[in-house]
Simulated scan of single mutants.
Amino acid sequence: MSSIWKPSVTVAAIIERDQRFLMIEEETPDGLRLNQAAGHLDPHESLIDAVIRETREETAHDFTPTALVGTYLSTFVSPTTKEEVTYLRFAFTGEVGQQYDHPLDDGIVRTRWMSFQEIVDCKHMHRSPLVLQCIHDYLQGQRAPLSLLFTHPSVLGSPL
């Protein structure tokens, strides 16, 4: 086992349409939880490719990222398993596209378009405190250009 500590890198899509946010309900070891379309960065994948993939898998929607809302670091301890994980989350906003008729990822119960107040009202169901923080930052207008993100070709499996 490596003695080097490594946070779990995740991506999330903050998608708003008509003052409603696209959210998912998912089964977790701690019960039904609410989250943005989000998930882990896979090997040989850029952060942008990861958020596009996760959004498609969890919502059946196309997603085109247009900006980075923020980066977030949080430690979570599962009340059920007592496992501690530190997450490094990259939250993106962008344009939602076509919705496809295909099954959602395992564990995803459904998607929901929710107002900010509805999301606040069910804070007890949030997958993590980052759910609300990302939306808050988005509503405050926090945006960074995608050009701040660089993925070296070696990550994508290209020869050096």
Rank of each mutant, 00 (worst) to 15 (best):
Q99G: 00
M114C: 10
V109G: 07
V96P: 02
R112K: 12
F76C: 08
T86D: 06
V109K: 11
L88Q: 14
T93W: 02
L73H: 11
L104T: 00
T75A: 15
F116K: 09
A91S: 13
Y100H: 14
H102Y: 14
P103D: 15
Q98Y: 05
M114G: 05
E83Y: 10
Y100F: 15
Q99E: 08
V96I: 08
M114H: 03
D101M: 06
R89H: 04
D105C: 05
S78M: 03
M114A: 10
M114N: 01
K82Y: 09
S115F: 01
L88K: 09
K82L: 13
I108S: 02
G107L: 14
F90R: 03
E95M: 08
P103N: 11
G97Y: 02
F76D: 05
L104I: 06
D106H: 12
R110P: 09
T81E: 04
E118I: 02
F92K: 03
H102K: 12
F92T: 00
S115V: 06
E118S: 05
R89N: 09
T93C: 09
G94M: 00
T75W: 07
V96G: 01
T75P: 04
R112Y: 02
R110M: 07
T86W: 11
Q99W: 08
V96K: 03
T81A: 07
P79M: 04
Q117M: 07
R112N: 08
Q98R: 12
E83M: 07
V96R: 04
Q99F: 05
G97R: 02
P79D: 05
D105R: 10
S115Q: 10
D101W: 01
P79F: 07
P79H: 09
A91W: 02
T111V: 10
K82S: 13
T81H: 11
K82T: 06
E84D: 03
H102I: 04
V85K: 11
T75H: 08
T86M: 14
R89V: 09
H102Q: 15
P79K: 05
L88T: 15
S115W: 04
T93M: 00
Q98M: 10
G97W: 00
